[in-house]
Amino acid sequence: MNTSEIEQLLGKYFEGETSLLEEKQLIEFFSGDDIPEDLRQYQPMFSFFKSEASLSLSDEQQEKVLERRLEQYREETSTVKSHPGKKRLYYFSGIAAGLLLLAALVFTLRNEIGRRHHNELSNPAAEVAYSQTKQALLLVSVGLNTGLDAVQRIGMLNNAMEQVQKINKFYNYQTQFINPEWMQSPSTNK
């Protein structure tokens, strides 16, 4: 195949109009040795296509992939299998933790209050103080009661005073009739 034919084919090639057979001819031409200077720039392209087409996947490579995949699969299944159970476990452990916290809180609070009561009752100094206060209050109350008798007597005196005032009123009334001027003089003086 001469140079001009190749040039023509190249023109068609770049327009996407060569047939597969023509492209094969091009590849063959460029894998030869006697390539004119001005066509040499196309050589790498066609020798690349030719060498790439021979690339293959060896059995060793395939086995390697299978091993990798098997390992990956094992890892995935070991993590995936426990997954739904794990999810439920998380759910319930959350609730359990919440309940535990609540129980702990209630327990400690109750303990705290209980201990406070217990401390007050069991403190001997406080007991002594309590009984002393009680006695003192009792004393005051007894004293108050005795005072009450006196107050009652004062009440009697009050009654007497009322009687006296009644008598006094009556006396004043009487004196108005007996000596009206004497009675009126202080009122005019007012």
Binding site: L55, L57, Q62, L66, R69
Partner: peptide, 24 residues
């Protein structure tokens, strides 16, 4: 078809290992 698949995958992924994997 393994070689064709491999070459095509390698062209696109530019990595041998990933292309091998893709064939599987």
């Amino acid at each position: 078809l393994k070689d064709k698949i491999f070459r095509f995958a390698k062209r696109m992924l530019e990595q041998t290992e990933e292309a091998e994997d893709l064939v599987q």
